[in-house]
Design a protein around this nucleic acid. Structure first.
Lengths: 148, 148
DNA sequence: GGCGATTAGTTTGTGCACAATACATATGCG
DNA sequence: CGCATATGTATTGTGCACAAACTAATCGCC
């Protein structure tokens, strides 16, 4: 597996399948999210906040597997765009709490169309998607376990 | 599929599985490739050249799904590192031909160890990997077909 | 209560990724 | 032949991703 020396080049490597598929998703999302004024990583943050508003940067980073040096500038841009607020937690001034603005919350209404476009392009049965997600998430967790 | 509004947040979205798994691969590769002085995208270029030396930027971009604005600076760094040469094709001065140096070719010897580490971490049977690659590459191609 | 250690976030610097633009070489067609 | 068009790279500007170094608040422990 993930073997380049079978003369297939990157085409035979599992990691490259993930690399290229991930980029392909981003590319497909780009024009859809452009109408919402979001990049793909910004969209992931908004999805997280739509699901759980008021979490802090640390928690968000844990669900997205991103650290604060990536999130801080991204969140500042969402803040500038008027989609979220960033306030220190009075109970613990180290934490920055993330809250959706009205505008940020309203954006969720347009999310259904986005998801439908993606689902159509993927052209997979619901059970196939679930099985695939389970397989990939398991792999990701094994890889992460080795990294630390 | 890829549905955030089932209250799972990004965890229920197939695209996020790819996004996070791809990052997990990169993170696992990082310390391994650091000993070779390569980043992960640079490694993909080297793998491609080990498989087919002397190709031009356009062809490389086609196999990696990257355009010249990404590849040009990356190839300059590989050139500076003494791993490849970049020369214009005398037959068509628009093309830049990429050739491995002796040092670049020699690096392939250390690739076996890298691949083994990754394979161990993935902990998947060879047939499972093949099936997964086929599924993912098919999905990627469908997504790309919709993008253009 | 005070002080070293931990924790949450920010900053800085490097390297991808990509849209848009620019530029130079090659090709085709009148 | 000459010029419009197409092709292959390079450049510029924005945003993500991450390591390393820094700041500030909190916690632990005496």
């Amino acid at each position: 597996m993930t073997k380049p020396d079978d003369n297939a080049g990157v085409a035979g490597m599992l990691c490259f399948s993930f690399y290229s598929a991930s980029h392909a998703f981003t590319q497909l999302y780009r024009p859809l999210l452009e109408t919402l004024g979001l990049t793909y990583p910004q969209y992931l943050v908004m999805v997280s906040l739509w699901s759980r508003d008021g979490q802090n940067v640390k928690e968000l980073g844990k669900t997205l597997f991103l650290d604060s040096s990536t999130l801080t500038p991204l969140l500042k841009r969402l803040n500038t765009a008027g989609l979220i607020t960033r306030t220190r937690n009075p109970q613990d001034e180290r934490e920055v709490l993330l809250h959706l603005t009205e505008k940020g919350r309203a954006l969720e209404n347009q999310n259904g169309d986005v998801m439908q476009c993606i689902a159509e392009a993927a052209a997979l049965e619901a059970e196939t998607v679930d099985a695939l997600r389970t397989t990939i998430d398991g792999l990701r967790n094994r890889l992460r376990a080795r990294t630390k």
